[in-house]
Write a protein that binds this DNA or RNA. Sequence first.
DNA 1: ATGGTTGCTCCGCAA
Length: 268
Amino acid sequence: MPNLRLLTWNINSVRLRLPLLAEVVRELAPDVVCLQETKCPDEFFPHEAIAALGFPYRTARGMKGYNGTAILSKLPFAERAADPNWCERGDCRHVGVDLDVPGGLELHDFYVPAGGDIPDRDLNPKFAHKLDFLAEVTAWTAARGPAKRAVLVGDLNIAPLEDDVWSHRQLLKIVSHTPVEVAALNAWAAAGEWHDAIRHFVPPPEKLYTWWSYRAKDWLAADRGRRLDHIWCSQDLAGKLARHHIHKAARGWTQASDHVPVLLELAL
DNA sequence: ATGGTTGCTCCGCAA
C-alpha cells in the first residue's frame, strides 16, 4: 500500500475551526487525522462536513466545553471501546482504534491534562490530576507490554527535551517542562518501549516546537514555543518512518489554534 | 516580575 499519512492536531474547537481543518486536509492530504480539544459534545460533532472532506470513518469522544478527542480516517477501523476510563472521570481524553491496514495498526489519540499553573500536586489539584493520569496510563501501558504495530499521538502537554522549549532554564518551574513531568512522560514511553517518531527526524539540539502561546504580542518574532504534541511509534515501526512535517505555517492563519498540525508518514 | 489571548458558556474557567 502507499505510505500512510497520520496527522495529529490540537484543534481547539472542531466547530470553530472546521474551515482550517479543510485547509489542513487540502495542504497535507492525511489519511488519518487525530484531533484533541474538539470541545464538542458527540451529538453536535460535524460528521457530514468532515465526511465531505474525504473521511468516511470517524469516531468522536466529546463533551461540553472542554477536552474531546476524535479520529477521522479514509481507511476503515474498529474502535477500541474497552480502553480505560482514565481517573474515572469520563472526560474524553483518549480514543483508540485498530486501523484496517495490512498487518494491522493500533492507534491511540491522547489529550493529557494541561495541569494548571502551579507545579505542585499539594497546592494544585489540576497538577495532581496530570500526574495521576500519567501514572495510570503508564501502569496500563506496562501491563500490556511493549507496543507492537502501534502509534500513539496527541497533545501530551509535556515538552520533554531541553530543545523542546525556547528556554530550558526559564521553563524548569513552568508546568509542561518540570522535571517531575518529564520523568513521568519518559516513564510512560519506556513502559511501552515507544520510539519518538518526530525526534527520529530532528534530533537535538535542533529546536522543535508545536505550540506557541496566544499571549505573545508576536508569536513568530518571539518564537517562544514548546513541543507539546507528539507522535510515538512501536519499535517494530521505527524502520518504517518515511517523513514528518510540523505545519508551523498554520500558527499564522487567521483564527489559528495555538497548536499546529504534526504529520508522520509511515511506509507500512 | 508581571501580564498577556482565546474559546466556551454563562458572566468564570480552562488553557
